[in-house]
Design a binder for these strands. Structure first.
Lengths: 238, 238
DNA sequence: CGGACCTTTGAGCTGACTCAACTCTGGTGG
DNA sequence: CCACCAGAGTTGAGTCAGCTCAAAGGTCCG
């Protein structure tokens, strides 16, 4: 298992963690033949430094990306200046699915720390999906999963209080880190309070106040961007 | 073109309107061979009366549905009782994509008026997508389009005032009706103020107040659920 | 060690909510 | 044909969660 320090930097997935390095989008339960077929493909990678963008709104859509290392935010720009964060993307997660429908990216993806992605050319992926049924279904699940996740977010934005949103945000992050082999208890936020607020439909001061409240009530321990979850039970019942 | 009365009841799409009846999910630009292949399939239909459900949360996922006639809402049930509307679905639009990722439906679809859907068995669709490349891409676009639409909704819920949300809701509905060959100027809301509010993250009183305000300011003309858009320009600049 | 950026905390304000009363509409039955 | 009723919609008055504005720490990095 990773040490707390490593985990905080998203640098060391557990041994045996989910696909990432060389098999970015391999579905589970693949037949040996199909596995060989997919393993034979070399997916290129790309490094994006903190603050740099992976793609911008309106860019031609050619490929989707799997985060290997690091962390991204996706942002929609409104009326020229005002921008809203629509998601955060951790290692193992997918970026760029929004581009399929119009052949142009509908948002901008920005690295929150020095990061690396695996590039999956979309026409190659479509070919693969026509040849390998398991792969096809895997991609359909991926897309559908994104839809379900966004529906859940809409419910959050539509019904929850500021306190509930921040709690839900921490728990969601924790669960996603756990799914990728990182610690679900202690981690480092890679985003600012303002970015969290933008994502949750809150102002940065409100996010800060809620974190302070959780701290005071003994639900979490925070020091800047370092977060330790002390009472998951209470946090989920906020 | 349809008369205003017909339009109000969603009963008469224009001649030449988007696919609906016998070719529920036919992509554009299909080769004659592929068109013949897809045309040979008989998709079953199903009638759902007002207030009845097409599928419920947790139901086995077998197929997706294309609305032929009528109107649906999709609802997520939270903590047993509290429920939130996650979307409205007009003729020609798709229902059930949320079920792919877990093989179970993640929400409930309820008819807002007597309606009819076309049933597309998902394994058949996947087979078709493996055989017909154009169809495959069409389905990918469909899924991606849903993701983009939901992102836009998240931005709305995260940043807009009550007034802006209601205005955006009316304009969105208008545009979608237009896309299916109905009037974009005058139409009948099939949902209650409460359902609109649930969808927009507002209370029914607030929705009602905003509609009254638009009426007073001469942006729209409403009489119960009948809506006529008088000043689209101003409405979009609210 | 200086400066830019991020974070915390306080004080007052306001848009949307809550609660409540009243009206309108469509359907039902006497 | 009208009376009635239940569900839907409108409108008003008061409240409060989250926003705005402001000022004081913290932290990171050159």
């Amino acid at each position: 298992m990773s040490s707390a320090t490593d985990v905080g930097h998203h640098a060391a997935p557990c041994a045996g963690a989910a696909p990432c390095q060389d098999r970015p989008i391999t579905p589970p339960d693949l037949s040996p033949d199909d596995l060989a077929r997919i393993d034979s493909i070399q997916f290129p990678t790309r490094t994006i430094h903190r603050g740099e963008t992976l793609y911008r709104t309106g860019d031609d859509f050619r490929s989707i990306y799997i985060v290997r290392v690091g962390c991204f935010k996706t942002v929609i720009t409104h009326h020229d200046d005002h921008e809203q964060v629509t998601g955060f993307h951790l290692p193992g997660e997918t970026l760029g699915l929004d581009g399929i429908c119009t052949d142009r990216h509908a948002c901008e993806a920005i690295a929150l720390e020095d990061s690396s992605v695996c590039i999956v050319a979309f026409d190659l992926l479509e070919t693969l999906c026509r040849e390998v049924r398991t792969m096809q279904h895997h991609v359909h699940r991926l897309l559908s999963g994104e839809i379900v996740r966004e529906s859940a977010l809409m419910v959050m934005l539509g019904t929850m209080t500021a306190e509930q949103r921040v709690a839900a945000f921490l728990l969601d992050l924790s669960a996603r880190l756990a799914a990728r082999g990182y610690s679900s208890v202690e981690f480092q936020l890679r985003m600012t309070r303002e970015e969290i607020g933008s994502f949750l439909g809150l102002k940065l001061e409100t996010v800060s106040r809620m974190l302070s409240r959780f701290q005071k009530d003994g639900l979490i321990d925070t020091r800047g961007r370092q977060v330790r979850i002390l009472d998951r039970e209470k946090l989920s019942r906020v």
